[in-house]
Design a protein around this nucleic acid. Structure first.
Lengths: 243, 243
DNA sequence: GGTTGAGAACTTGTCAGATATGTGCGATGG
DNA sequence: CCATCGCACATATCTGACAAGTTCTCAACC
């Protein structure tokens, strides 16, 4: 019972999508540069403007094009929007996916921290310092969380691996709410803000010392604590297994 | 000089997208179920069918809808297509991103293996066995690689974390070509297929023994070898740093 | 009664043409 | 030289129409 059936010939919209992809990838178009207008593309490809529009929409949703009224479509700078959309949709579909996302984040951040300890440039370390200081001076939950996000983003950036950066960044927005919950759980467990600052301080020190293993371990411990905080808030068993 | 300008009121298409998202997420529509037809949606939302179509296309690109000619749009089952598209686009934009992807994969697979050792069900172990045996009996490059992919996919699935599974799966297709390169590099380094099988055997054994730490370590070593293989093929320095 | 098959009804895919509105550039005037 | 005002161009959206694929209905047939 193979119910799958390939269309005999790809739809015109699919053809437009492929054509546009070729323009973007193989057409020597740099991010920020403009494509021909919808009308021009339509006549060039022998389809109606409507069909071009649908293709353009598809590539916009994939984060490859930037469309604004009155301007021609522009090649987008690489960005994490598609990832962000994916994670956000996963969470909206089933909030239980939050715990899965936390695991992904743990894996990526621990490895990212390893890389950061090895490759962080001076400027990367500077922005890491900045975020850390902002955190320590924050006097309300909101600004603290904001600085916390910036710290982790700066650390991901320090890894020199943009893919990791994008993934971390993409999870920030969908997990914004969970950060608050985690903080509540943290306090509910009788722990203080100083603990959190200590954890971050250890990470920062190890990265600065180029101690890859120590930095990874510090990050791992921090994220395991965070995971327990979240589980506490969600009233789930707080297994303290290490990984 | 803030050149950003928010549109005074969101475009109608954006409104349609939000409306459709609400239908999908909050509308008690299960994957596989159908939305109202484009025409019905159009009259219900007071826009033209064209506008509805653009919204539908957007959500299709995000992996939330499945559209086929003659049928109404259906809610899609959660899938990794958007992730796959993202990774593929990243690689097409700049093949150097391959090494970054390898790092992401290392982070996720190592952690996924840890989870697999802890949580793998009996059936998950069975399919892992199956993939392993298929690998060992493969007699050409193509079928070997195919079984290799299945082994890693089964391992990711055994972690019980669908998010990790999706991410691994999403990287498979874009990295298909690199797998061949890695194999070439492997042989170029004077190593044999038996080495690869040994590495996999160690992983499998540790997972079976519920030895989370050992499984993670075996996977890490395997992926570091693979990374070196790839670097050899690409004629890059093969740093053997651990992480 | 159950099965099959031909349409009918519905739905998406695509086209054409038209209007509204935002962008950018160049002419114009101070 | 510089600000401003149009005008050409581009996207956003609508209407109406037809082609082509899918599903449902119902009658004819075994």
């Amino acid at each position: 019972m193979d119910n799958e059936r390939e269309p005999l010939s790809e739809s015109r919209t699919a053809g437009v999508v492929r054509h546009l992809e070729e323009l973007i990838f193989d057409g020597d178009l740099q991010p920020g540069q403009f494509l021909p207008s919808e009308g021009e593309l339509a006549t060039a490809m022998g389809v109606s403007r409507l069909t071009v529009r649908e293709g353009v929409r598809t590539l916009e949703a994939r984060g490859l094009l930037e469309v604004r009224r009155g301007r021609r479509p522009a090649v987008a700078y690489p960005n994490a929007a598609p990832l962000s959309g994916f994670f956000a949709a996963s969470l909206r579909r089933d909030p239980r996916n939050l715990l899965e996302l936390v695991e992904v984040r743990l894996a990526l951040e621990v490895h990212g921290t390893t890389l950061a300890a090895r490759h962080a440039t001076r400027t990367a370390l500077t922005s890491l310092d900045l975020a850390f200081n902002t955190m320590s001076q924050a006097n309300d939950e909101e600004s603290f969380n904001q600085a916390d996000v910036r710290f982790h983003a700066a650390l991901a950036a320090a890894s020199g691996n943009q893919m990791i950066s994008f993934l971390i960044e993409a999870m920030d927005e969908p997990m914004r709410e969970s950060r608050l919950r985690s903080l509540r759980g943290h306090l509910a467990r009788g722990r203080s803000m100083d603990d959190i600052m200590d954890e971050h301080a250890r990470i920062l020190a190890a990265v600065r010392d180029r101690d890859a293993r120590g930095a990874a371990e510090a990050m791992r411990e921090h994220l395991i604590q965070t995971r327990m905080d979240l589980r506490t808030f969600l009233a789930l068993p707080t297994s303290d297994a290490e990984g």
